[in-house]
Design a protein around this nucleic acid. Structure first.
Length: 399
DNA sequence: AAGCTTCTCAACCGCCCGGAT
DNA sequence: CATCCGGGCGGTTGAGAAGCT
């Protein structure tokens, strides 16, 4: 446990990656695949630890990465996924091809959270902040549930204090640790319909509550399935034939989820909630069936990644990847070809199971990407421009 | 123009999990 | 069964950029 042995090794380089390092890593992985990450630095001739190489590859060098501004549709999707998954960035990222968990996490912390609060929504519970205030008052009065109030209040306060307590609100894949209610019927007060029941993580409670309320005002808590897997069958989450999101949620619950989350986050853009990317639809429709309504899925059935950024419009090229710099045949473009079985196959592996870019797989995927969105090959100067700005800080950092 | 504040995001840290031994 | 080890994840940090006064 604790720090990895590689982290103890001396003279390992830290900090920003130099172009030379990037190139070494790219060349190594495209040629041999990453295999065992711990051996990558040695084989690639890098003075980095394996974890650092892995991170660099996954978050920055991977050829299928789509950088640049998040589209409103993507943000909307992130919000909805977060409502269900909580801070499981890797799982969220798995539903957003071309985006990394780090990227999404950053976006959430820097932008989306703020936007949600501005719209009166608690980014952690996805409840209206006003509701939380009311619940706070309620729980304060409830002396019979002292502990309940305690936890509840702490949950309420974290909006202003810390965001870290969110973990216990999300679906847990750790049955013993987190799904067992720690004697805390704790969060129940926010979810009156489910009082006196075993308490699953409240985010789900919230949406289940909404669901029950919207579909059957008289339903009681006993109708709640013990196992949320029945409702949130995330094990089946996968990229469907369109790489778009084919989330096999229980349609009814998914509706509730979407309803709860569809707070017209992007209302200023006049995008109706039905146009928003939703997590599943009644009648077992999948999200990719929204193509007709949502530009998110345009682009020859693949993804249209939303607005052209101002930078794009200005012809700036700061988001070009090193892979393009290499100008090898499979670096010529980087869109996701949804109809190509090879690429689909790659995306059937989520980030957790590892989009293991063996040289062969990479080549295939990159090659097919090339067929979609030809891009101008950038000169090394252009490509590295952003990074050159940071080089003074990056070089010479040996721990 | 300078100084300060806020924002962005790449990278690191520490922990957990699961497979191998 | 215990321990080790590598992969992976989420939280956090901090440098640089951008915005503001």
């Amino acid at each position: 446990m604790g720090r990895h042995s590689c982290c103890y090794k001396q003279k390992l380089r830290k900090g920003l990656w130099s172009p030379e390092e990037d190139e070494k890593l790219i060349k190594h992985i495209t040629k041999y695949g990453h295999g065992c990450w711990s051996s990558v630095p040695k084989l690639a001739g890098l003075q980095r630890c394996g974890k650092s190489c892995r991170l660099r590859w996954i978050n920055y060098l991977r050829p299928d990465l789509k950088r640049g501004t998040f589209s409103p549709e993507e943000e909307s999707l992130i919000i909805e996924l977060h409502a269900v998954l909580g801070n499981r960035w890797s799982q969220i990222a798995a539903k957003l091809p071309g985006r990394t968990d780090n990227e999404i996490k950053n976006l959430w912390n820097s932008s989306i959270k703020k936007k949600l609060r501005q719209r009166g929504i608690d980014p952690n519970t996805h409840q209206p902040l006003s509701e939380i205030d009311q619940n706070e008052e309620k729980t304060a009065k409830n002396h019979d549930h002292h502990k309940v109030s305690e936890v509840s209040n702490s949950e309420l306060n974290f909006v202003e204090t810390t965001e870290n307590s969110h973990d216990h609100q999300i679906i847990s894949e750790k049955p013993i640790k987190q799904q067992q209610p720690t004697s805390s019927s704790s969060i129940v007060p926010n979810f009156p319909l489910l009082e006196n029941t075993t308490v699953p993580p409240p985010t789900h409670e919230f949406f289940l509550n909404r669901f029950l309320a919207s579909h059957d005002q008289t339903s009681n808590s006993t109708s709640k399935p013990q196992d949320f897997q029945d409702y949130f069958n995330f094990q089946q989450l996968n990229y469907g034939t369109n790489i778009g999101l084919s989330m096999n949620l229980n349609p009814n619950i998914a509706t509730a989820t979407a309803t709860a989350a569809a707070t017209s986050f992007f209302s200023p853009t006049s995008r109706s909630s039905t146009e928003m990317v939703s997590i599943g639809l009644p009648g077992s429709e999948t999200i990719d069936q929204l193509q007709g309504n949502c530009s998110f899925f345009d682009n020859n059935g693949g993804f249209s990644w939303g607005k052209t950024t101002e930078k794009d419009a200005a012809g700036e090229t700061e988001d070009i990847k090193w892979t393009e710099y290499l100008q090898s045949p499979f670096f010529l473009s980087n869109s996701i070809q949804n109809q190509n079985p090879v690429v689909q196959d790659i995306y059937t592996h989520d980030s957790k199971s590892g989009i293991s870019f063996s040289a062969e797989g990479s080549l295939n995927s990159w090659h097919h990407q090339n067929q979609q969105q030809p891009q101008t090959i950038q000169s090394a100067e252009q490509i590295y421009s952003k990074h050159f700005q940071r080089l003074p800080a990056a070089f010479g950092q040996f721990s």
